[in-house]
């Protein structure tokens, strides 16, 4: 066991899915659910041990969607434990610049988004999917969501995401069909905000 605690460069101690075929299907359906019904929250129940600062839901999403065909940018150094873990379990390609990536993962929410691939008018599906870890996800009335997948409106609260990031997202998505699709994670929770979702900030008394 002592040997396992000192991983070589390539073999992380943290485990992926026990049964990738079965577990990735379950996780995918949760991602599909939150992407098609923006702002709903699903919980990942799989046993996973991701290296810090990667949360369980973030790891589950990455293991489910990424492989050698996907270009990924992380807001972490290339030699981080998370990079090694993801490379080992998925074979993904880590890229230098965020604008080249199919998936951009923020382990802490930035004030503004870096340069991202928004797709083109003719091929909007090539736009990046942005995964953002947050401190908490719940249905407190902070963000009012409307758009496809939402019956009238839905409320979501993603703690510690700066207002400036929502503004930046809004600007990118005003170029529809170009835009960015966001997956939010928080410990074992998962939600999503595709480019079609309109967000209205609910003002609280504190401002």
């Amino acid at each position: 066991m002592a040997l396992l605690q000192e991983p070589t460069d390539n073999i992380p101690v943290e485990t992926g899915f026990d049964d990738p075929v079965y577990e990735s299907q379950i996780v995918f359906r949760k991602i599909l659910k939150v992407m098609s019904e923006p702002g709903t929250i699903k919980k990942i129940k799989n046993k996973l041990s991701a290296p810090a600062p990667m949360m369980k839901a973030t790891a589950a999403v990455c293991l489910t969607l990424m492989d050698f065909q996907t270009k990924v940018w992380l807001d972490l150094p290339r030699d981080s434990e998370v990079s090694k873990y993801l490379k080992f379990h998925t074979g993904l390609r880590i890229v230098e610049h965020s604008s080249e990536a199919d998936f951009v993962v923020f382990f802490s929410a930035p004030d503004e988004l870096p340069p991202l691939n928004l797709g083109t008018d003719e091929n909007p599906e090539t736009a990046a999917t942005v995964i953002i870890q947050t401190q908490s996800l719940d249905d407190t009335k902070k963000l009012k969501l409307t758009g496809p997948g939402i019956k009238k409106s839905r409320f979501l609260n993603a703690e510690n995401i700066p207002t400036s990031l929502w503004d930046h997202r809004g600007k990118a998505n005003s170029l529809f069909p170009k835009g960015i699709d966001i997956i939010l994670t928080s410990s074992e929770k998962l939600s999503a905000l595709p480019r079609t979702t309109k967000i209205k900030m609910i003002k609280t008394e504190k401002g």
């Binding site: 990735s24 991602i31 599909l32 992407m35 489910t64 969607l65 990424m66 999917t129 069909p177 595709p194």
Partner: peptide, 17 residues
Amino acid sequence: KRMIRRATLKAVAIPGY
């Protein structure tokens, strides 16, 4: 499946495309 799943998520994000 992963390739089709990624395409499906983008299809959902851009309704009708």
